[in-house]
């Protein structure tokens, strides 16, 4: 029934997500539509940048795709399986194949656990390994993301912001996922840290065919990171194509607006930096 191209890893169809909110005191309900019939295909071993202004529904899409939130309607096909049709038990093995990295590593890591415990947690949940084996793998991964082995017993608050994000990414890589979603995970990092992480991700992509989705709020990073760009607006994908095409011949007004922001940021990088922080 599906007409997927053989190299398609993810196919999202008519994805809808509405939140029901309740006002304080009066108790009246109202709904927010974060995703409105969204369609998107992601190729295997590609790097996609999902760009949009804040409020466009990027993070909701990322969480739905990362299997952290249940959409209201629609389908998410991952490797020819509609993951939304699976129950909790059936979803369990799929989870190790899809991982998400949050923007703020401080809140994504439990401050009461050591780095080693944090890295071992996904293994503890997903596999039946001995404690020594888990610990060995955690140390291997610390090395891979260029954190010293001595940091295994440190807690998140003892790390710098960049190190913390490395730790969060290392945890996401622990299960060797096929799809890694980075929700603004590189946006707040200094250039040197970001470059080293990007190198690591590139290497993994080349070695293991890792598929990457970067969620971004501006085009500046997209041009550096991604081969494909999808532009999101008001809960839908309004334009999707190769980065080269999008930068040279933008079609949707929204893309053009984002592009203008990107161009002016190249002329006045200081101003853009302030905006990114805000």
């Amino acid at each position: 029934m599906t007409t997927l191209a053989p190299d398609t890893l993810v196919s999202i169809r008519d994805l809808t997500k509405t939140y029901v909110q309740r006002r304080a005191f009066s108790g009246t309900q109202f709904t927010i539509e974060a995703l409105r019939g969204l369609n998107l295909e992601i190729r295997r071993a590609s790097t996609l940048a999902l760009v949009g202004e804040s409020g466009a529904g990027k993070s909701t899409l990322a969480r739905c795709l990362g299997l952290l939130e249940r959409p209201s309607a629609g389908e998410i096909w991952f490797d020819r399986v509609n993951v939304l049709a699976l129950d909790r038990r059936q979803l369990f093995p799929v989870r190790r194949r899809i991982q998400l990295v949050f923007q703020d590593p401080a809140s994504a890591l439990n401050s009461g656990m050591t780095a080693a415990e944090i890295l071992e947690e996904p293994l503890l949940i997903q596999y039946d390994l001995t404690k020594a084996e888990r610990h060995r793998r955690a140390l291997d991964l610390l090395d891979e993301v260029e954190l010293p082995a001595s940091s295994a017993e440190k807690r998140p608050l003892d790390f710098s912001g960049g190190q913390r994000q490395r730790l969060a990414i290392a945890r996401a890589l622990m299960l060797r996922p096929e799809l890694l979603i980075l929700d603004e995970a590189l946006s707040n990092l200094d250039l040197a840290t970001r470059d080293s992480i990007v190198d690591l991700l590139d290497a993994l992509q080349a070695e293991q065919g890792l598929t990457l989705v970067h969620v971004l709020h501006e085009l500046r990073l997209a041009s550096q990171l991604a081969s494909d760009v999808a532009v999101m607006f008001d809960g839908q994908i309004v334009e999707h194509g190769s980065a080269d095409r999008l930068f040279s011949r933008p079609e949707h007004p929204c893309t053009r607006a984002l592009l203008r922001g990107f161009r002016s940021s190249q002329e006045a990088p200081e101003a853009m930096h302030v905006e990114a922080l805000g």
């Binding site: 969480r63 990362g66 299997l67 952290l68 979803l91 369990f92 989870r95 190790r96 899809i98 991982q99 998400l100 949050f102 703020d104 809140s107 994504a108 890591l109 439990n110 009461g112 656990m113 947690e121 996904p122 949940i125 997903q126 945890r171 299960l175």
Partner: peptide, 26 residues
Amino acid sequence: ERNFVLAARGFGASDFHLLRRHILPR
């Protein structure tokens, strides 16, 4: 609602694991 709980859910953690490792210690 904290992200580390959400992340652990993303690994397929059971409710018991979430409560014991992440929530009850708080």
